[in-house]
Design a protein around this nucleic acid. Structure first.
Lengths: 168, 168
DNA sequence: ATGTATTAGTTGTTGTTACAAGTAATGTAT
DNA sequence: ATACATTACTTGTAACAACAACTAATACAT
């Protein structure tokens, strides 16, 4: 049979397909938007910013690498490389954890704190202008609900959803 | 109503902040999900799949590089590198455009067509299981509307919004 | 105590992406 | 016809991420 009518994206009804195509476009464009603003204004990738932001909100501005990696949705190897570079730039300081000598604590330095503080307003403005303000309050609430729904499936460790994960 | 406060993520009210944190997590996790399924089952990145899929739907299974780059939300350099690799793998064939000798046409080969056809069902199943099925029909419609709203700001060329956007 | 498995993290390799620079064809104005 | 700008694309380089392999500490079982 000629498959010309059935495109490579099948199995979704027209409404679902349309929603998906728009959603993928958003998902592909948002990271670049965040990265380029932060890179331009603060010489940080979005991931680096997120790492610093999580540390800045932690007690003592300090977290274990493992905890930090799950808070930033990243693998431990990726985090390790990034924290190493941040340490070389003087924004973070690593030290062995006293209670468990396998573990490493990552702490924000004073300079790191200052960098996050300076980067935050521009970042928040970008988020507001590009994501929050274009939506109604109702849509923001819908996006929250939808994201939570998706994270139940997507989030490997379910750390954002206090529910028992299905077998893995 | 703008607020200037000291923590890294501020200037958003609690509802907005919560929605944003969940949404970023989704945006960070979805590409990895698509990539790993396609990589595992079809040895393609999601971007490569998308390039092949766009070609497979084009008249003659052929597109100009520039057109293809905007359809895939990518820069021309990025597309050029990817198409070069796809050509080396025999999935795409490039040829100079007869009417404009600056331009290059990228065409899907028979093998490329076969590869997309084989990859499609698994990809669609992943999308359905992880994005569409967790949502109600109403939420899918909401996601569509929200994505469109965001693309008006995000999509530089508005190529996904054929109709005139609301007056801005 | 000793051996094994698990956890925590780092490092190396390989491939991809972004950015900037370069080439070539085309359009436009004089 | 010549000069200049623009468009279309390619290529080189440097940063980044994914994956796998590695080291070291801890937990558990006998």
């Amino acid at each position: 049979m000629d498959t010309h009518e059935t495109a490579p994206v099948q199995g979704l009804n027209p409404a679902q397909l349309h929603a998906w195509m728009r959603f993928v476009a958003v998902v592909e464009l948002v990271p670049g938007l965040l990265d380029s603003q932060l890179q331009r204004d603060s010489a940080l990738s979005h991931f680096e910013y997120y790492v610093l932001a999580m540390l800045s909100e932690a007690p003592n501005r300090t977290l274990r690498m493992t905890g930090l990696s799950s808070m930033t949705n990243s693998s431990l190897p990726r985090l390790s490389h990034v924290v190493k570079r941040l340490e070389e730039r003087g924004l973070v300081k690593r030290s062995p954890c006293p209670t468990d000598r396998r573990a490493t604590n990552a702490a924000l330095t004073e300079e790191g704190w200052a960098v996050v503080q300076e980067a935050a307003p521009g970042h928040v403005r970008t988020v507001r202008e590009n994501v929050i303000d274009p939506l109604t309050d109702e849509q923001v609430a819908q996006l929250d609900a939808i994201s939570n729904q998706l994270l139940m499936k997507l989030d490997p460790t379910n750390r954002l959803n206090p529910r028992a994960p299905e077998g893995a």
